[in-house]
Design a protein around this nucleic acid. Sequence first.
DNA 1: CAGTGTGAAGTTGTTCACAGCA
DNA 2: TGCTGTGAACAACTTCACACTG
Lengths: 216, 216
Amino acid sequence: MRVKTNSGKHESGQIPEPTLRRLPGYLSFLKALKANNLEYVSSGQIAQNFKMDSTLVTKDLAYTGIKGRTKIGYEVDKLIQTIVSFLDFDQQEKAFLFGVGNLGKALIKYQGLQSYGLHIIAGFDTDPAVINTTLNNVKIHSIDEFRDLSRKQNVRLGIITTPDAKAQETADLMVAWGIKAIWNFTPQSIKVPDNIIVENTSVYSDLAVILNRLNQ
Amino acid sequence: MRVKTNSGKHESGQIPEPTLRRLPGYLSFLKALKANNLEYVSSGQIAQNFKMDSTLVTKDLAYTGIKGRTKIGYEVDKLIQTIVSFLDFDQQEKAFLFGVGNLGKALIKYQGLQSYGLHIIAGFDTDPAVINTTLNNVKIHSIDEFRDLSRKQNVRLGIITTPDAKAQETADLMVAWGIKAIWNFTPQSIKVPDNIIVENTSVYSDLAVILNRLNQ
DNA sequence: CAGTGTGAAGTTGTTCACAGCA
DNA sequence: TGCTGTGAACAACTTCACACTG
């Protein structure tokens, strides 16, 4: 029998990815409730908002270690804090971004990410037109400077928003200079050592789902 | 026993979402193979590239209706065409985009989407600074013009890249004027009638997964 | 053999049913 | 009664085992 310690975060058992993906949604909903001065929320209310089963919400929330009160539900404020801390959205993870094109610029300018724990501290590009410019207080460097900067700053996360063809060499460079996790916005699959974490975000996957549902 | 007709696309059984999400990745890999003049590919090769089980690749490809040849594999060229057509990436679905901020601009400028079947034909915003400008040949309109434009053009897909607080009212407007599917880039969950398709793309979900894997 | 193709087994994730509680 | 919490049933997805083919 598997014992769940549930002491909060970073427990031994791996959190299911679907749960991790749903929690930010709950967070957004909870913030809206808070803005309306609601003090308590039930799993049923959350479930209704997302058109899902309330048990699933309960189980998702259980992973964060929070306890609800029967008949009353969960304290909105505490639940927000618990999820934020559980997801490490309060940690300010530093990141380097490679490829300051349309998407890269949008990510750097996107204020939202900062309040969700992601702090892009530098951008890198090969285009002289963007090198040495500053976007949202983030300086864009030539790729050559990556080596020095990564020595000075202990950055674990790298973001790839380069053209597709540059994805692999960018990933290689990141791995060579100590990046531990890569967030790849390119449709290219990149090859990295097993100990490196890769998360692929491809808008094409979402598009595929939409078009299929539209046309079926 | 369930009979699979497999006549290609739009068959009765719903395609599993995980399969739909993986196919664009295969496509990108296949295009790279083609660029290297490779004629045939096996499910094992694809599987290896994505570090997955080859049977899963085989089953994914089977949904598209393509047949592989034993000992040889699949014809790269034909496989590309088959996937593209299966995913309706050759259909040029027209879309309206609401909210021409950083992300909205990036999507409009992002050439990739166009070659994957998405054709954003107009943008809408409330900011006079962007109204009547043109980005990548896409004209940005005032929201008031949506009604007229949606009458002239039969657009089924709407994209929300507005500030979070505007997501729901934008969705309501879209539904009122005949949009059938909504692609929501906001973390807000939107409420729409049951017959409307909603696809949520939230960068926060991916972030949650990365941070969790990094910190565990 | 080196590949596809497929039913069966296994695993993971979701929903159901119900116990417990205030 | 309205809620949490949880074990059991169920459904979806993935992997395994193996028959088949050129």
